[in-house]
Computed example of a mutant assay.
Amino acid sequence: MPESNKPLVVSTPDPRTLDLIFTPEALQHLRERYEIVETEPDSIAALPEDQLEAARYIVGQPPLSKETLDRMKSLRCIFNVETNLLNNMPYEVLFERGIHVVTTGAVFAEPVAELGLALALALARGIIDADLDFRHGMEQWGGEGNKNARLISGSEIGIIGFGDLGKALNRLLSGFRAKVRVYDPWLPPSVLLEHGVEPVDLHTVLSNSDFVFVVASVTSENQGFLDAEAFAKMRKGAAFILLSRAGVVDFEALMKAVHDGHIRAATDVYPEEPLPRDHPVRKLHGFLHSAHRAGALDLAFKKMGDMVLEDMDLIDRGLPPMRGKRAERETVSRMRSKPVDRN
Score class of each variant (00 low, 15 high):
G154A: 11
G158F: 08
R177F: 14
N146C: 12
I152P: 07
L169P: 03
F162D: 01
E156V: 06
K179D: 09
N148P: 00
I160Q: 04
K147H: 10
S153E: 09
N170Y: 07
R171A: 02
S174R: 04
R150H: 03
K147Y: 10
F162A: 02
R181H: 09
R181T: 15
S153R: 14
E144F: 12
L173F: 14
G145W: 03
D164R: 01
D164Y: 03
A168S: 15
E156L: 03
S174I: 00
K147N: 05
G175Q: 12
G175M: 09
D164T: 04
R171D: 02
R181W: 00
L169R: 03
N146F: 13
V182C: 03
K179T: 14
G143C: 08
G161K: 09
R171E: 07
N146I: 01
G158I: 08
Q140T: 10
I160K: 07
G143K: 13
R171P: 05
G166A: 09
G166I: 07
A178W: 07
S174E: 00
W141R: 13
I159E: 06
A168I: 14
E144V: 11
W141G: 05
R171K: 02
L151E: 14
N148V: 11
G142I: 13
L169H: 02
G163D: 03
S174F: 06
G166H: 11
K167E: 07
E144T: 14
K167Q: 15
N148R: 13
K167V: 15
A178K: 04
I159V: 15
G154Y: 07
D164I: 01
F162T: 08
A168V: 13
A178V: 11
G166K: 13
R171W: 03
Y183A: 09
G175P: 13
K179W: 04
K179P: 06
G145E: 01
R181Y: 01
K179A: 02
K179C: 06
S174N: 01
I152S: 02
K167L: 13
G161E: 05
K147R: 15
E156P: 04
G175H: 11
D164M: 05
L173Y: 02
A178Y: 06
E144H: 12
S153F: 14
N148Y: 12
F176W: 11
G145Q: 02
Y183I: 13
I159H: 09
L172A: 04
L172C: 03
Q140E: 04
G142V: 13
S153P: 00
G163C: 10
I152Q: 02
N170T: 14
G158H: 04
V180G: 02
G161R: 11
A149W: 09
I159N: 04
D164L: 05
I160N: 06
G163A: 09
S174Y: 06
I152M: 09
D164E: 04
R181K: 14
R181Q: 15
E156K: 14
V182M: 03
L151C: 11
E144N: 13
G161V: 12
G158K: 04
F162S: 05
F162P: 12
F162C: 08
W141N: 05
R171H: 08
N170V: 10
Y183L: 11
N146P: 00
A149H: 07
S174M: 04
V180E: 02
R150M: 13
A168C: 10
G175C: 07
